[in-house]
Design a binder for these strands. Structure first.
Lengths: 206, 206
DNA sequence: GTCTATATCCAGATAGAC
DNA sequence: GTCTATCTGGATATAGAC
């Protein structure tokens, strides 16, 4: 009894996840307005109505995805922040790790794409706007902070840390987009040029 | 008579331009599906019906904008290609000039955004797909070619030219997006980190 | 929980007056 | 050329059978 309820709960959770994952692919590629509920239903092999059994509206799905995307990114950044490594190693690690995740876990690229898109768009649901305005800057701030420490040690190039952080995320997003567009077909670009952006010379070849 | 016809022709052309410019802003920010004909009409202070007097469909407007965007970009690249400058100077010039245009002519950023968005999207009209598939790679190829010449002269960092060209455009697009999002409020990021991506050391400080 | 059928609404596009 | 009114289709969301 209580038993069955638990199991049902799990099944229900699973279905939700399926819908979210399917919707993520579609939203990331076609945007909120460009994705019909019917598309999501078809893509997850459910009926139209069933989607509405799990979510009360298309926007709700979208907002939940935005929330998840932002939370995952922030979590990764906080983890990075706490690592016991010199700043320039943290940055290198962050680049390598982000790119590895992008290449191996497809939904990662989609999350990046989704956030980038949503952040640039005006006609985004209020709930998503709220998430974005409170959380979007955090990864930028954390990277900027690490870069600043590195600059003090002379291992990171000079320049406004916020500017460098901007380039950092910009390139990560671009790589994610590249991955989504060309997938396994084209190989991921080599990352040396990216390192060069951030590391001072002595450090660069190390 | 022939006189009046000419004048009318000019007025008509002007209206078309107004619609295109207004639509560009909306498409770039909200995508094709996220932009209603009514939005375009309101934004250009025309009636719904009048928009249809100049264009036969929403998609037609979109495709024309994509075409224009690609053609402008290609034209600028060809101009760059033909300049009588050493490769690394061409690259520096290209970055400076692109960023200057992005900062001073607002529609430029919107064009960049529009193309990036459309290229990533699946649900784009056939006409736009066609434009993209025949033209999108040209700016990448031209920049890669210039970078390759520079590599032969030792003024451009080594690495696959296509990869470097990818980063080149990726950062330009990111700056365009930044400009659209924060406009005049936030100042444009400093470009030194970008130069570092492409130039060899001796050259970098020159 | 899951489906089909449907009510409702909204947006693309057209018709026709001025 | 420009507008308003309207047709029409399609998409969101709901109702109700199973």
């Amino acid at each position: 009894m209580g038993r069955n309820k638990e199991i049902n709960q799990v099944v229900k959770e699973e279905r939700r996840e399926r819908i979210l994952l399917g919707a993520l692919e579609l939203f990331a590629l076609n945007g909120l307005a460009g994705t019909k509920i019917g598309d999501i239903a078809k893509h997850t092999e459910m009926s139209n109505g069933l989607v509405y059994h799990y979510f009360s509206s298309k926007e709700e799905i979208f907002v939940e995805l935005i929330r998840t995307a932002l939370d995952k990114m922030i979590e990764a950044c906080r983890f990075l922040e706490k690592m016991d490594l010199p700043p320039h190693t943290k940055i290198r690690f962050a680049i390598d790790e982000l790119v590895k995740t992008i290449r191996t876990k497809p939904e990662t690229s989609l999350y990046h794409l989704l956030i980038t898109q949503a952040a640039a768009s005006v006609s985004v649901p209020a709930g998503a706007k709220e998430q974005l305005s409170t959380k979007r800057s955090i990864p930028y701030d954390i990277i900027a902070e690490i870069l600043l420490s590195g600059q003090k040690l002379g291992t990171i190039r000079k320049g406004k840390p916020e500017d460098l952080a901007f380039f950092f995320w910009n390139n990560i997003n671009g790589i994610a987009m590249h991955q989504v567009m060309y997938g396994r077909k084209a190989s991921c670009p080599h990352l040396e040029p990216l390192y060069c952006m951030f590391f001072t010379q002595e450090n660069e070849n190390g």
